[in-house]
Nucleic acid binder design. Sequence first.
DNA 1: TTGTATGCGTTATCAA
DNA 2: TTGATAACGCATACAA
Lengths: 336, 336
Amino acid sequence: MSLTLDDLASLSGVSRATISRVLNGGPVAEATRQKVLAVLAETGYSPNRAARTLASGRSGVVGVVMHLEPALLFGDPYFSGLLQGMSDALAERATGMMLWLGNRSKQETLQDIERIGLVDGVIVTAHWQDDALVDGLLASRIPTVLIGHRREDRTASYVDVDNVAAAAMVTRHLIDLGRRRIGHISGLAGSVAGEDRLTGYTQAMAAAGLPTDALVVRGDFNPAAGRAGVPPLLEAGVDAIFCANDATASGALAALVEAGVAVPDDVALAGFDDLDFAAGLTPPLTTIRQSVAAQGAEAARVLLDLLEDPDGGPRRILLPTELIIRQSTTGGTHGA
Amino acid sequence: MSLTLDDLASLSGVSRATISRVLNGGPVAEATRQKVLAVLAETGYSPNRAARTLASGRSGVVGVVMHLEPALLFGDPYFSGLLQGMSDALAERATGMMLWLGNRSKQETLQDIERIGLVDGVIVTAHWQDDALVDGLLASRIPTVLIGHRREDRTASYVDVDNVAAAAMVTRHLIDLGRRRIGHISGLAGSVAGEDRLTGYTQAMAAAGLPTDALVVRGDFNPAAGRAGVPPLLEAGVDAIFCANDATASGALAALVEAGVAVPDDVALAGFDDLDFAAGLTPPLTTIRQSVAAQGAEAARVLLDLLEDPDGGPRRILLPTELIIRQSTTGGTHGA
DNA sequence: TTGTATGCGTTATCAA
DNA sequence: TTGATAACGCATACAA
């Protein structure tokens, strides 16, 4: 069957231990190193992962936990982008990826992960302020990196975009354009992204001395929420609407058009995510671009880094976002 | 840290081997079994996967290889459905899932899989008549199950839907409705599904003594191909069009409407897949429903079965499909 | 039915 | 710089 270190030892005339050192970068004379490398190349040897794991305590495999409704998981390019980014970064560092989706209860999933052992660490999507699975992983002895975070948590490692700053940036953009009655159709209550974007909006408005009373409508990240949010905001006399994401903005745009409101002349409109369709709307949508694949890749790197140096304290990464200005805010003649 | 068999042996007063037997269903007296089980439950012991793998040669982890363009992987609900189905079936049998996506070359991916060892077997999507990665896996010593298959291959285990039979079923449905000039906009050349559906169509036409000259247009599974296929088929005087998938059918429908052709009165239209949008078209689309999640789950079961009994020969599973009749073929007054 | 002993293929600790 | 040798935690052939 497969070659073992002993086979290679016979073939190259050195001890098993020396081969292992060559493999793992231990101290070994250059001459013998070359000799061993030659045999290695010639035989196409590859180490037994299980034995290596048993002896070293590290498996070279990490877990990815995306505990979501299937529809959400795949309907939304967000999660697929994450997966792609993680897969890339892990493959680059010869690390395997085990995947847990939401087909069992959080309780069971947590047990599965602990039971199967053999993952050195996990990356878990954490989009809710409260999540038993995330809590369980953080409480376990498994090194864990969150994608997303809970604001009050100071001990967990995470990768996220700075939703607060990004939302404030869009809002300031609208303010800079001369808009004063800026409404917000928020994301799902309880979601970190939703709450943070709301916070960013509120902060920017407050900083500009603008009121937000009656200007915030609760949404849920869906087009329907965008549609539903438009009438009360028109009622409140808005001249701009910042939606918690592009999907919401697309619904809002439809409702505005139906109501005969000119965008952006009467009401400027902005979203968040820069999904593919955003540039194709009429008018093209001003929005926030976040590289989802980059988030996934960064999470993978952070986890590997954490495994390398577990005592380095929690890693907290906020990735930057980019304001993409399109005609839904600047295309009209308003204020010109 | 973690408990070992030796710890449990001390705790329960039997030997390590006996504990192992209880764990693996070996012969053990009922009394001692109960005693051991009690200790097991009490301690919440879970075996070290690496050690178990090393000793037994089986890891309890399988690989899933979906080597595709990212856009295809996640744009198409097909692949997400597969993943979901596999994940379900594997979780049910306490088997872990490692994932390889298309972020490295086929060559590298193959090496990765072999190098990482520790997968007992793999499931690989095989939608092309020729695929170096699939060939490589089949040639390796890793037990492999294909999703999709190559018709000429009699040795590989696979799970697929019976594309030939399904396509023949739709075609017969059109024939039974009295259509005679039935056109086909095919799938991508070189794809198994595309070729098989073309075969099914051709067979059904031949069986009914109907000609197919000038009635077949090459497509590529996309709406644009559907649009492009309509003019030549109208030219050929069709009274029905069977498209290789729903996406193609949606494009064809748009082109028919634009050309002022009544569906189904003038031309009946059928697709394949029964994607979500099919029922929402105007008119709702007659199509073939294939349960993608079921395919994924079945592939997982087949692989586990193959691992259980490697000498049972290749498993070749063709899952049934269902003809979903809607108004794009039966809604009109044609032939009434 | 149970226990003992050995092997799985590495890594890592000691001496040399 | 190298080579023995002891873990790592479990499965299993062999004895009892």
